[in-house]
């Protein structure tokens, strides 16, 4: 009996789940995304790793993307689902532009649309396995929101998904303020990303930072952070723990 047969035998439910296709667990995933409001708009950071379980499978995954003129999206979770979401959004923005009537979807509208998409998929027990961060500026209004794979959503001045919620948000809560300049915003994001790089095992040292203002979106070229691994405790990590196992 092969493993699939074993599964079917074990779980009566599985037979129906084999017939239809739905995400029961993610395959290739991206880790944390961080987003903050700053003086002129929104900044977002994400690294470029794509993990296949604990294997670092891809190293140049772009997880920050512009959506239309006024919005920016960042995604953690299943990469294929994110790319599917990008296709939805491309279509949404295309149809919006086709009206050519001076009206356009802003970040609030896109965030709400995404929330409905994520929630409808969870209602069908077929989730898009992502945590999304949506930022943007329209008519002088800054917007930063997030939505999870089951449709939980909110806005805040700073947002971090996954591990970032544990490691980056405490830093952001302490150091974020309304009037961050672009330079200080980038520094703050890099500080958070560095902590994540040190402590999140699926983070990689190749990241992008994206900026959105009234003028539009700019996404940086991939770059890496300076790290320091020369602490004496790192030289011989088992020192001081001899005989523990």
């Amino acid at each position: 009996m092969n493993s699939i047969d074993a599964t079917i035998a074990e779980k009566g439910l599985m037979s129906s789940e084999m017939g239809s296709e739905r995400t029961l667990y993610p395959y290739v995933t991206g880790t944390s995304v961080i987003g903050i409001k700053y003086k002129d708009g929104i900044l977002m950071a994400a690294d470029m790793g794509g993990s296949y379980g604990s294997t670092l499978r891809y190293k140049s995954v772009e997880r920050l993307k512009p959506i239309g003129k006024h919005s920016l999206i960042g995604a953690s979770g299943e990469i294929s689902d994110f790319q599917e979401i990008l296709r939805y959004l491309d279509e949404l923005i295309l149809y919006d532009n086709m009206w050519d009537d001076g009206n356009s979807l802003g970040p609030k509208e896109v965030h709400n649309y995404l929330t409905r998409v994520m929630y409808n998929r969870r209602n069908k027990f077929n989730p898009l396995w992502n945590s999304l961060v949506l930022g943007g500026v329209k008519n002088g209004q800054k917007y930063l929101g997030t939505v999870s794979m089951i449709g939980v959503h909110f806005e805040d001045n700073h947002i971090a998904t996954g591990f970032g919620n544990h490691l980056a948000r405490p830093i952001l809560r302490k150091e974020w303020h309304e009037n961050l300049s672009f330079e200080d915003g980038v520094k703050l994001l890099e500080k958070c990303m560095r902590v994540l790089l040190y402590r999140d095992r699926s983070a990689v040292n190749k990241l992008q930072i994206a900026k959105i203002t009234e003028e539009g979106v700019t996404i940086s070229q991939p770059y890496s952070l300076k790290t320091f691994w020369g602490f004496s405790a790192f030289q011989n990590p088992t020192k001081g723990a001899e005989g523990s196992w």
């Binding site: 493993s3 699939i4 029961l24 667990y25 209602n123 027990f125 989730p127 089951i150």
Partner: peptide
């Protein structure tokens, strides 16, 4: 073998 050991996905959360 080949059977994913993962907690079943839940459509619910408690946000308190």
């Amino acid at each position: 073998m080949g059977i994913k050991q993962q907690a079943n996905w839940s459509p619910y959360d408690n946000n308190g």
